[in-house]
Design a protein around this nucleic acid. Structure first.
Length: 238
DNA sequence: GCGACAG
DNA sequence: ATCTTGTCGC
C-alpha cells in the first residue's frame, strides 16, 4: 500500500450533498424546471482560493460510457495537477434515468457521475467535464449543473460544436476564438494541438473563462483531449 | 415552419 | 455514445 498511488488518501470526498436528488426529473418539463431553478446559483467568477492557476493540487476528469440497453458507466479519475499522474479513480455502472435529449444532457449523465464522485477518496479542487457548461441553450449545461450540485469548481470541454457561432482559430496550439451565442461570449474554441481540430471550452462554476482555458491547455500537453478526460474516457469503457 | 442538436 | 479497416502523417 505504500507504493500504490491510488491509496494516497488526502481528504475524503464529502458524501452528504452529492447524491442525485431523490426524485430525479422524469419528464422534459420537470428537467427544464430544475435547470431554471438552479441556474441562478451558478458562479462564473474565478475562485481566488480554489481553481485559480495556483490553488489546484488535484484535478478530476469525468466521462460516461454507454453499454447495452440503458446501461451507463460513470467514471471519474483524479490526477495530480502537477505531474498529471493518476492518484485516484472510481466507476459506477447503472441504468440510465433519463433519455438523451440535447440541452438536457446532464439528467442522463449526472446520476452515474455523482455516484462515482462519492466513491473518491481524494477531493479534487477542479472538475473537468466532458460536455458544455455556459455554452448551452439556457446557459446551464452539464458543467454548470455539476458545479452547483457539488459546490466544486468545474469546466466544460466538448469535442464538437453545440450552440453558438465561432470562427476557426489559427492553427497553432493555444490559438482560440470566442463562441458567441445571442451576442454573448459563452466559451472558446481552443487549439490544444497544432493543426488539429479545436476543443470547445465553456465555464461551469467558480472558474473564469480565461482561467478555464489556461487549465485546459496545461492539462493537454500532448493530446487534443485534456488528460483528465482521456483517462476518464478510458475507464468508462473498460 | 424546418433543420440542427454536447454524449 | 456506439457500430467499424485501413491508412496517412508526425
Amino acid at each position: 500500500m505504500i507504493e500504490d498511488p491510488l491509496c494516497t488518501v488526502v481528504e475524503p470526498m464529502p458524501d452528504d450533498r452529492l447524491a442525485a436528488p431523490a426524485p430525479w426529473p422524469t419528464t422534459v418539463e420537470e428537467a427544464l424546471a430544475v435547470q431554471e431553478r438552479l441556474r441562478p446559483l451558478v458562479d462564473l467568477a474565478d475562485d481566488p482560493t480554489g481553481a485559480d492557476a495556483s490553488g489546484v493540487r488535484h484535478v478530476a476528469g469525468l466521462d460516461v460510457g454507454y453499454g447495452a440497453g440503458d446501461e451507463v458507466t460513470g467514471a471519474v479519475v483524479v490526477l495530480d495537477a502537477g505531474t498529471l499522474q493518476v492518484v485516484d479513480r472510481a466507476v459506477v455502472r447503472e441504468r440510465a434515468r433519463f433519455p438523451y435529449v440535447p440541452g438536457l444532457f446532464a439528467f442522463r449523465e449526472l446520476p452515474p457521475l455523482l455516484a462515482a464522485l462519492e466513491r473518491l477518496r481524494i477531493t479534487p479542487e477542479l472538475l473537468i467535464c466532458d460536455g458544455y457548461g455556459l455554452a448551452h441553450p439556457r446557459r446551464f449545461g452539464l458543467a454548470c449543473h455539476l458545479g452547483v450540485l457539488t459546490g466544486l469548481p468545474t469546466v466544460g470541454v466538448a469535442k464538437t460544436a453545440f450552440v453558438g457561432r465561432y470562427d476557426t482559430p489559427a492553427p497553432e496550439r493555444g490559438a482560440w476564438t470566442p463562441i458567441v451565442l445571442d451576442g454573448e461570449v459563452v466559451g472558446r474554441a481552443l487549439r490544444t494541438r497544432d493543426g488539429v481540430k479545436p476543443v470547445f471550452v465553456s465555464q461551469g462554476h467558480r472558474v473564469g473563462l480565461e482561467t478555464a482555458c489556461a487549465h485546459v491547455l496545461r492539462l493537454a500537453p500532448r493530446y487534443r483531449i485534456p488528460e483528465p478526460i482521456r483517462q476518464a474516457d478510458r475507464l468508462s469503457r473498460s
